[in-house]
């Protein structure tokens, strides 16, 4: 079995972003970038499946500028086998990402594609679902447990009211939720080894995809600031304020 894991390079989750009023966009200058946390969980899950003897090869693919290769190297250091870098200047919208991934899947066949449920920059939560539609494959989003049994995959999903378990036919597309696993740190020897692993390059223009965006961003603003910081001294005062000032109880 072969697994494909798409990964995205995003602003590190610990960074507090700032909106640049002049460019009308989020300021990405000199900001720490990392692998999208949900994608890291996807890489980890693929490695665990391989360690359980249920997968022969893990291929990691990333779209983006030259630096996206670092993100691929990250995943290779964790334990993925090789990488594919699709060179794009910016980060395309999810539909276009899904179309590029569809082409990647046409070049080589994958039994399983594991993606993060959403990237923490645009928060779209679409790519995995769209890819499953384009490939006409079964879909298991928000996975918190994955069990592979011959031709089927049992997926436990985090849903609004609790957990849902479904059975998917292979080949399938999965997206990861937070509690699927805890990703490992890459060891120094593995980081060294990852430098020898292959990263193939692909040019989107060779894939025959119209890269014109269907949605454009007009502007980006800071959200209205919440004025907080009020304090009370006791529970009695709190209850009094809630009852008589705010009128919420």
């Amino acid at each position: 079995m072969k697994i494909l894991v798409p990964v995205k390079r995003v602003v590190d989750y610990n960074v507090k972003i700032r909106v640049d009023k002049e460019t009308n966009a989020v300021d990405l200058n000199n900001i720490k970038m990392s692998i999208n946390p949900f994608d890291e969980i996807a890489v980890e899950e693929a490695i665990r499946i391989k360690e359980a003897g249920q997968c022969d090869e893990i291929v990691v693919v990333s779209l983006g500028p030259e630096q996206s290769k670092e993100t691929i190297r990250n995943a290779l250091a964790m334990g993925a086998d090789r990488g594919i870098h699709v060179k794009t200047d910016h980060s395309p919208e999810p539909l276009l990402v899904a179309k590029i991934l569809e082409k990647v899947c046409e070049k080589e066949d994958y039994d399983l594609i594991i993606l993060g449920k959403q990237s923490i920059d645009d928060d779209c939560n679409q790519t995995g679902q769209m890819l499953s539609a384009l490939l006409n494959r079964s879909l298991g989003t928000y996975a918190s447990k994955v069990e592979i049994e011959n031709d089927t995959i049992i997926v436990t999903r985090e849903i609004d009211g609790g957990l849902q378990t479904i059975k998917l036919k292979k080949p399938a597309v999965l997206t990861t939720d937070l509690r699927l696993n805890e990703p490992r740190y890459a060891s120094l020897p593995n980081i060294m080894k990852a430098k020898q692993k292959t990263i193939d390059e692909l040019d989107p223009s060779d894939l025959g995809i119209d890269m014109t965006p269907k949605v454009s961003t007009k502007k980006v603003e800071e959200p209205p600031k919440r004025v907080g910081g009020g304090k009370v001294e006791s529970i009695q005062e709190l209850v009094d304020k809630l009852k008589n000032v705010s009128g919420v109880i």
Partner: peptide, 23 residues
């Protein structure tokens, strides 16, 4: 944007060849 909505709608959008506008 419930888990059902988030799960199902992008699949419809891709079939329609349009982007989804989320949340």
């Amino acid at each position: 944007a419930t888990t059902n909505g988030k799960n199902i709608l992008p699949r419809v959008a891709a079939k329609l060849d349009v982007s989804q506008i989320s949340e």
